[in-house]
Nucleic acid binder design. Structure first.
Length: 499
RNA sequence: GCCCCCAUCGUCUAGGGGCCCAGGACGAAGCCCUCUCAAGGCUUAAACUGGAGUUCGAAUCUCCAUGGGGGCACCA
């Protein structure tokens, strides 16, 4: 961090999702960048719910948003459930404010009521398409006499409010990553800013709220770039100071072709991935991994790319964000998740995998979970893999397969002999620890003139019921002498049966 | 169709005129370690979209082309 950064004044930033479905990765990333900027400057991170499209609002999604942010560790300072000095933080609860502001614009001649019906607009657009013209509002009500318009509004006629874009000249809007964006005003439509249900559209609501909530930096997706000049015009029509605008790069589907769609979402989940935060949690990803993954999609560091939230706060710089779209790469998520799992303390790891054992109806004991933690920590990329690897620790008995006890180069007689010798050996051990058990077992391998892989392989299958497991001797120690003996004898019985 | 944005290894990226025959990470390949699987260590392959400028010098600046992406709702 440079001295200049340290002296930067506290930023007020907001993440402003719509409660219309599951919390998406892109929302998480915007929230993360917001959070980093706020923490870095000693500012505030605000959650605002943009629920002005009542029809699209999905019950429960607001809660999912809040839960998701907290799960990620992105605690917001102001929001609908915790309040704050600039509330309310749900747009439907601020409707009077928008109405008032729409009226200010109308009075200033910067906006006008429009009485056109949806049917007329649809016909108009169809006609324009046919003539290969840009589908824009034709300005019928823009030309209406103001007094007449006022009378019709007063009489209760159904209408919307449109923003009156200048027909001449250009608008220059400044994006922090792209510099000045210049567009000819005639290319911008007279957008509806207040709908006939009295609720605002994004174009009004977001501008009004960002101003009143004293937002200093607006971080949002690049899909807003095309209406950016409109927004700048709205802000200027009010005479307000503009925030710093930062349009974040879009996420592309893993192939890099096109942005993420609903169908990609269902494809991903089949492979054990998801673009939704809640799913990621259920799939066994940990917040540290997810955060590290998304923070680097749109931002880069020269080296040392394993970052904790604390590291990110220290090193983040909005001006170093990338403007180009990024294809999401789930393999990289695996990598970061595995890396951060290994960074967890045994106690922390045990606490976090617990639910995944519990959901498999395994009788987990916390004490044992913590002992096996170091053994499985480095063998999983997601928490949900842990039960597969370590269920044998908790099961009363395991069921080794005969063919796995006798892989190629091994017959039942030899396998039985190994098991039998092992039983004798284990019984003779003064202490049943990995340390004490390994040397005599190595001697056994030599005596039998087999390879360690062969001998330990048979034992592994007998003790764990698996061909792949954590290290044998440490596993046996945790399973315990009596249980190990019992399992070895059971394996011998399986071998004794005719195949 | 119109408008806007973007362009470095397969992917995410570092790079801001000479430090770059381009660095890191994921993934891939190989080797080492090794009781399985991992983890870890080492190594290798892999990119400046093209063309014109500007300049002593361009991955870096300008223009054009091409490619990719986004938008064109009383959705956000």
């Amino acid at each position: 961090m440079t001295d200049q950064d340290k002296m930067r004044k506290p930023a007020r930033v907001r993440v402003a999702p719509s409660p219309t479905g599951h919390m998406h990765l892109a929302t998480a990333r915007t929230a993360l960048y917001d959070y980093l900027l706020a923490r870095q400057t000693g500012g505030k991170f605000v959650l605002r719910i943009e629920d002005t499209d009542v029809r699209r609002t999905v019950p429960g999604s607001e809660q999912e948003l809040m839960d998701g942010l907290r799960w990620l560790g992105l605690e917001y300072d102001e929001g609908p459930d915790i309040g704050g000095p600039f509330g309310p933080y749900r747009q439907t609860e601020r409707r009077d404010l928008y109405l008032e502001h729409a009226n200010i614009l109308v009075e200033r001649g910067a906006a006008y009521p429009c009485f056109c019906t949806p049917e007329r607009l649809e016909k108009m657009r169809a006609e324009q398409q046919k003539q290969k013209l840009p589908p824009h509002y034709d300005g019928l009500c823009r030309r209406l006499d103001r007094d007449e318009a006022r009378r019709r509004v007063a009489s209760g006629e159904r209408h919307v409010i449109r923003f009156k874009m200048p027909k001449e000249g250009t608008t220059t809007a400044r994006d922090a990553l792209r510099g000045d964006i210049v567009i000819e005003n005639k290319n911008i439509d007279d957008y509806v800013i207040l709908k006939s249900d009295g609720l605002p559209t994004y174009h009004l609501a977001a501008m009004v709220d960002d101003h009143h909530m004293q937002i200093t930096h607006v971080l949002r997706g690049a899909e807003w770039l095309s209406t950016f000049p409109l927004h700048v015009n709205v802000v200027r029509a009010f005479g307000w100071e503009e925030p710093e605008w930062v349009h974040l790069s879009l996420f592309l589907k893993p192939s890099g072709k096109g942005k993420l769609s609903k169908r990609d979402a269902s494809e991903a989940i089949k492979d054990g991935y998801s673009v939704f935060v809640k799913d990621l949690q259920d799939l066994g990803f940990i917040p540290e991994g997810v955060l590290n993954w998304i923070v680097l999609m749109g931002w880069g560091v020269a080296e040392d790319d394993v970052l904790t939230l604390k590291d990110m706060v220290e090193r983040f710089d909005v001006r170093h964000l990338t403007a180009s779209p990024a294809a999401i790469n789930f393999t990289k998520l695996d990598h970061f998740n595995g890396t951060h799992i290994r960074l967890l303390s045994d106690t922390d790891f045990a606490r976090r995998v617990r639910p995944f054992f519990a959901s498999q109806a395994l009788p987990v004991k916390d004490e044992m979970l913590e002992r096996i933690a170091p053994l499985i920590k480095e063998r999983v990329t997601t928490l949900d893999e842990a039960p597969n690897l370590a269920a044998f620790f908790f099961r009363p008995e395991v069921t080794p397969l005969r063919e796995e006890l006798t892989p190629k180069g091994m017959d039942a007689r030899l396998a039985s002999e190994i098991l039998n010798e092992s039983i004798t050996l284990i019984q003779a051990l003064p202490q049943f620890t990995a340390e004490a058990a390994e040397p005599p077992f190595r001697q056994l391998v030599e005596r039998m003139q087999r390879s360690a892989g062969e001998v330990f392989g048979v034992l592994r299958v007998a003790v764990t019921g698996q061909k792949v497991s954590p290290p044998l001797f440490q596993s046996m120690e945790i399973v315990g002498r009596e249980t190990v003996l019992k399992r070895l004898r059971a394996a011998m019985e399986i071998l004794a049966q005719d195949s």
